[in-house]
Design a protein around this nucleic acid. Structure first.
Lengths: 233, 233
DNA sequence: CGGAAGATTGATCAGTTTCAAGCTCCGTGG
DNA sequence: CCACGGAGCTTGAAACTGATCAATCTTCCG
């Protein structure tokens, strides 16, 4: 499991992409505007609409950011892992958080105060550029989520996700890395539906599945499902 | 109709929110890195995945940014109007555009070169802050789209959109401001479905509709639909 | 070993899309 | 000035996807 937990505090920042371009002095400046916080599994970190006093960076554990509906349904926007920052939006809009955040496990985060960070950005052009890059990548990701939700049906989303998990380890066994219920909420559906579709994929010999372990048996077939060329019967 | 087309070029920039904080000299600098471009109705401005040499600002007309699927379906992410910038993402990610852009009418835009603008940002902290604010607002918007697509059904999305259009002019007649087919693609559906749902709303006395003109007759009712408290029969 | 949370399965239902046909509006050209 | 033609919009019937509800099974911890 990834974890950011080095001996001295300079090391903390050097393993955070956002701060790559800062020098020692600037990193020390971060110390005075940041604080560690810990969350137990399932704790709320912030709620949609809340005002923010700053933003967060994951040090260890995992955080999910999600939207929830009146009816109790939940759409996960993304999981954040060690090194990822989250909750930046209200720092720059002045409004509230666009979504809620909750820890998925024992989690430790770094909290950075808004004023401090904004000041730091003001005379660190490269920090500003890094943050622009972070937000831009986030926009790209959200666009992809929208594409999934609007233009693809669930088997396609699932297939694409499996191929994403499989990047690099062709054919080998891999881990879903999430409880199936969470995966369902990430794909914009519910556990029952996910279960059924996984079942169909198994029946058609596309994948093998035991617990959270999964193997892609027919990569070409899965790709066809992802693209929409082929359908599950 | 809004239009940005002032006598001298300083004026151009002063009516663009992104450049509010720049002084005269900095605005003159923009001149050397920007160029006007014109598009006729329905012309592609860029395609998803294309590499970018810069980004755009709408001067007059309207631009839609959208995702399209293999099956020919289309999800509009947003419309951009005079003063709005669009297509910034690849400037900061180094990748391609996350979506495609097309003019909705005779449209004139300002194109700003990537290198020039990045250089400008580097020694204009407030320009960087403005851009951070722009991207953050965009993230907020996309989150809202995701919420709509995943957590709400179509009558709810439509009702929310009508209330949005109505902000300020309680009860008066207003304009859809879009062909119904485009509205459908903005709400994540197809013209047939939109037509039926508008029909149901009329039948229930929630709205009156003639062409693109629409009046909200029962604001409370429309709000209930938007929130999900009430359903159309 | 017991119990609770998570996962699967089946039957049913609701919402949305698809396909097909017809209609309306409006600009163009005869 | 009217007729034509086409795009956009509407309407209907049928098909489909995914959600809901309810029951059962599994897993994993305490």
């Amino acid at each position: 499991m990834k974890k950011i937990n080095p001996p001295d505090h300079v090391g903390i920042y050097s393993s955070i992409p956002l701060f790559q371009s800062l020098n020692e002095e600037q990193r020390r400046a971060l110390d005075s505007i940041s604080a560690r916080r810990s969350f137990k599994k399932g704790q709320k970190i912030f709620l949609e609409g809340e005002k923010a006093a700053g933003f967060y960076i994951v040090l260890s554990g995992r955080v999910k950011v999600f939207k929830s509906s009146a009816g109790g349904r939940e759409q996960i926007l993304r999981f954040f892992e060690p090194g990822d920052s989250f909750g930046e939006v209200p720092m720059f809009t002045g409004g509230g958080f666009p979504a809620s955040a909750e820890s998925c496990s024992e989690t430790s985060v770094l909290f950075l105060s808004r004023e401090g960070f904004v000041a730091l950005i003001r005379d660190n052009p490269s920090l500003a550029m890094n943050m622009l890059a972070v937000l831009s990548k986030r926009l790209h990701q959200l666009s992809a989520v929208i594409e999934d939700l609007s233009l693809r049906e669930i088997p396609g989303r699932l297939a694409a996700h499996l191929l994403f998990l499989d990047r690099g380890n062709d054919g080998g066994e891999m881990d879903l890395d999430l409880p199936k219920g969470e995966l369902a909420r990430l794909l914009g559906t519910i556990p029952e539906t996910l279960s059924r579709i996984l079942g169909r994929m198994v029946r058609e010999g596309l994948i093998r599945l035991k617990g959270q372990k999964i193997i892609i048996l027919d990569r070409g077939g899965v790709e066809e499902i992802a693209v929409g060329t082929r359908k599950l019967s």
